[in-house]
C-alpha cells in the first residue's frame, strides 16, 4: 500500500480538487483506494461527495472521532457505490467545544497520541489490502499536518504560481520538508496559465508576472536542499469548481489531466 499526502503551504491551491479526483480516478482504474479528509480545520469532502453522483452506501463515524479514540478504524471508513473507492470524513464537532481537553489534544501537540492513531489507521488500511491511502491534508505547518507528512510514503506538494507562494514554498521546504525522512516529495504546479491562454491577456504586465511566478516556483524547487521533482503541471481551467470531474465529465480537460497525472503515480 502506498500512502500519499496532498499538502501545501497555504490553502486554496487546489489540494482537495486534485486529491479527490486523483483518488476516484485511481479507483476507476481498478485500484483499491481510501481517501481521507484530513483537513480537520475545514473538512469539505462530505458535502462534496453528497452533492456528486456518488452514493455513500454506509454511514461511518467521523475520522476526527477516531483520532481522539472514540471509534475504531473500521468504523470510520465509508463504502461507496464504486467498488474500489472508500472515503473517510472529518467533522468539526469536537473543535466547536470551546473548552475541552480533547480539543486541545487534537489541535495542539497531542503528545504523539494523534500520530499514533494516524499510524494505527495506516496500518489498518494496509491490513485491508488497500492499494492507495490518500490524505487530503490541512495546509501549512501544524502538528496535525506534520503527522500526515510523517506517516506518508509520498508527499504531493501543491503550489500555485503566485508571488506569495514562492516565499511560502521556500519557507516550508527549509523548515519542514527538508527535515522529513523516508517520504518521497513531489511537487504539483496547479492553475498554470498556458501559452495560448496568455496570448489573450491584454495586459503585458500580467503576462510577464505570470511567467515570472512560474519561473520563481521552478527555481525555488530546483534550488531546494531536498529533491522535490515537479511531477505534473496542471493548466488553469476557467470555471472549475470543487467537483468530481473524472466521474461526472469524462471529456473535461481536468479529467484528461488527472488521467495523465495518475499514470505518473502508477
Amino acid at each position: 500500500m502506498e500512502t500519499i499526502t496532498f499538502h501545501s503551504y497555504r490553502g486554496g491551491v487546489g489540494k482537495t480538487l486534485l486529491s479527490v479526483n486523483t483518488a476516484v480516478k485511481l479507483a476507476l482504474l481498478g485500484k483499491k483506494v481510501c481517501l481521507v479528509d484530513f483537513d480537520l480545520r475545514a473538512p469539505s469532502h462530505q458535502s462534496l461527495f453528497t452533492s456528486s453522483s456518488f452514493s455513500i452506501t454506509s454511514a461511518a463515524k467521523s475520522f476526527t472521532g477516531f483520532l481522539v479514540g472514540n471509534h475504531e478504524p473500521q468504523k470510520v471508513i465509508n463504502s461507496t457505490d464504486r467498488e474500489n473507492f472508500y472515503c473517510v470524513f472529518s467533522d468539526i464537532e469536537i473543535l466547536q467545544r470551546k473548552e475541552s481537553k480533547i480539543r486541545t489534544k487534537l489541535t495542539q501537540h497531542g503528545e504523539g497520541r494523534i500520530l499514533a492513531k494516524l499510524f494505527e489507521f495506516v496500518r489498518y488500511c494496509n491490513s485491508q489490502k488497500f492499494d492507495f491511502l490518500i490524505f487530503d491534508c490541512m495546509p501549512g505547518i501544524t502538528y496535525r499536518s506534520l503527522d500526515a507528512l510523517v506517516v506518508s510514503d509520498k508527499i504531493m506538494v501543491v503550489t500555485r504560481p503566485v508571488k506569495s507562494e514562492i516565499s511560502g514554498l521556500r519557507l516550508v521546504i527549509s523548515e519542514c520538508y527538508s527535515k522529513l525522512e523516508g517520504a518521497k516529495l513531489f511537487s504539483i504546479l496547479n492553475q498554470v496559465e498556458q501559452q495560448e491562454d496568455l496570448a489573450h491577456i491584454p495586459n503585458s504586465l500580467d503576462v510577464n508576472l505570470a511567467k515570472e511566478n512560474v519561473q520563481g516556483i521552478t527555481k525555488c524547487l530546483e534550488e531546494s536542499s531536498v529533491s522535490i521533482p515537479l511531477l505534473h503541471t496542471f493548466r488553469r481551467i476557467p470555471f472549475v469548481t470543487e467537483r468530481i470531474y473524472v466521474l461526472d465529465e469524462k471529456d473535461h480537460p481536468l479529467t484528461i489531466e488527472i488521467e495523465d497525472f495518475c499514470s505518473k503515480i502508477l
Partner: peptide, 15 residues
C-alpha cells in the same frame, strides 16, 4: 480553530 503551528525548535523536536 486552535490548530497550533509549532516554533522551529518545537517542529524539529516533534519531527
Amino acid at each position: 480553530k486552535g490548530f497550533e503551528s509549532p516554533s522551529q525548535k518545537d517542529l524539529d523536536d516533534y519531527l
